[in-house]
Amino acid sequence: MEHCIADVLEVVGDRWALLIVRETALGLRRFDQLQASTGAPRQVLTDRLHRLTAAGLLETRPYRVPGQRTRNEYVLTDAGIDLLPVLSALSDWGERHLAEGTLPEIVYRHSSCGGRVTATLQCECGEQIDPHGRLIAEVRR
Rank of each mutant, 00 (worst) to 15 (best):
M1N: 11
E2G: 12
H3D: 03
C4M: 11
I5W: 02
I5E: 05
V8R: 06
V8S: 04
L9V: 09
L9H: 03
L9T: 08
L9S: 05
E10Q: 15
V11T: 15
G13N: 03
G13C: 02
D14W: 00
D14L: 00
D14T: 01
A17R: 06
L19C: 05
I20Q: 03
V21K: 01
V21Q: 02
R22Q: 13
E23N: 10
T24N: 04
L26W: 03
L26T: 00
D32K: 15
L34Y: 04
A36S: 11
T38L: 09
G39V: 09
Q43W: 06
L45V: 06
R48V: 09
H50W: 08
L52S: 08
A54I: 00
L58F: 15
E59F: 14
E59M: 12
E59S: 11
P62K: 09
V65N: 06
V65F: 03
P66Q: 14
G67V: 05
R69P: 14
E73N: 04
V75T: 12
L76V: 08
T77V: 09
G80T: 05
D82W: 02
L87F: 06
L87K: 12
A89F: 01
S91T: 13
W93D: 04
E95I: 01
E95Q: 10
R96W: 00
A99D: 09
T102M: 06
E105H: 05
I106F: 13
V107A: 13
R109C: 11
S112N: 05
S112V: 10
S112M: 07
R116E: 12
V117K: 01
E124C: 03
I129V: 15
D130G: 01
L135T: 07
I136G: 01
V139F: 12
R141H: 11
